[in-house]
Design a binder for these strands. Structure first.
Lengths: 223, 223
DNA sequence: GTCTATATGGAGATAGAC
DNA sequence: GTCTATCTCCATATAGAC
């Protein structure tokens, strides 16, 4: 049965890698399940046996990517960056570089804002991936000795994650050569984000911070 | 030929209203083009003759909605609100109320972040609608005698429009009873938005504002 | 458990009737 | 120009072979 399981694992891997190659070459929409099956030399049904839908292939890619990214991100966080801004910059650019070859595939993921859609970054299906990803921002924040306001601090990782998702979304659809608009966006927005976090500690900002925390509680709190 | 044109116009209207009714009843995804054609008593091809795709029906709905909304929004803006916050609140709630019966249909619009997809609020196809909509925020800003910083002012309508789109997106997928979470989100976020705009006039905020304007220039500027 | 052959039903395209 | 009948291709489902 080891044999069987192993053979199965190989078939699964073959189908996934074939699919990813085709997605890369022709894009997600253009590639059909029939093509994937034919190219991998299995019947169409076999493809569905391993991946219950075309979307499931993308989800598998997403999960695999996150697993491969984890050590890369850990390594990035282990480096001695001079401040939060530098760490965030390193985290985000590492991800963009990693996803570069499959940029068009990511659009299949980014295309869905509907939290009910399994491919949405906000869906239940991608919850585990999302929570791990948010964790990396927690670490980026914790690497500083600086104290963030107690009321705001618990929300910051999720806020930074949303910021990152915005950047990635922009990048996915960025048609400029080498996606240079995205990098300009990153260079311009990152200082604002970190500056705002710094400002939030000022007594003058107390009222605005209070409003912001209330807003975040409303978003993440119960109905 | 008046007859012909008129008959045609009637068929078109019939197909559109039939489609919208079905979308309302069963949702966008569940409704098939075949059903629409059958219910409207025309051949499938006729439906495609008037609307080149299922998405085109939604776009037609969007355009029609915007046309119907325009006088409503003008009326709202004509009322004497006490400040920007009140005007924005009125604008946004008016839209939400108007779209209430077709909330699920809006998800077909909101589902696409891809600016290349015609149903995206950022697409070329919806540019005219978008620009008119941004105009209403321009008017909401102009109704005040207050001067906004000259560097930031030109960007404010588009920024407020994005804020509105965020609220609408949240509303579309809000599963809480009566979408009360969205209204809480609106009550909590609107003061922050207007407060930030006020703060932006402070000399202390000059550096941050400068960064923000640079960011906006990068977003809306050329490649 | 793994996989094949075949079926279903839908979006969209098209040739041509009127 | 308006519309019908029909076709193609696709995602997905399923019965059952091995």
């Amino acid at each position: 049965m080891t044999t069987k399981t192993q053979k199965s694992e190989e078939t699964r891997a073959l189908i996934l890698s074939t699919a990813l190659a085709l997605f890369r070459e022709q894009g997600f929409e253009k590639t059909t399940m029939r093509e994937i099956a034919a190219e991998a030399d299995v019947a169409l049904g076999a493809t569905y046996y391993y991946f219950s839908s075309k979307d499931a292939l993308v989800l598998a890619f997403y999960a695999q990517s996150q697993a491969e990214l984890e050590p890369l991100l850990a390594e990035v966080l282990a480096r001695k960056h001079k401040n939060l801004q530098a760490r965030l910059h390193a985290l985000i650019t590492t991800k963009l570089e990693y996803f570069q070859p499959n940029r068009s595939l990511l659009s299949a993921l980014a295309a869905h804002t509907d939290p009910g859609h399994s491919l949405s970054p906000f869906s239940e299906d991608s919850r585990a991936i999302r929570e791990r990803d948010i964790q990396s921002f927690q670490q980026a924040l914790d690497a500083d000795k600086v104290k963030y306001p107690a009321d705001l601090a618990p929300h910051l990782p999720a806020v930074l994650w949303i910021y990152q998702m915005g950047i990635i979304l922009y990048w996915v659809y960025d048609q400029s050569p080498g996606q240079r608009r995205t990098f300009r966006l990153l260079e311009k927005s990152l200082p604002i984000v970190t500056r705002l976090i710094q400002l939030s500690t000022l007594p003058l900002m107390k009222p605005l911070r209070k409003l912001t925390v209330e807003l975040l509680d409303a978003i993440y709190g119960p109905d």
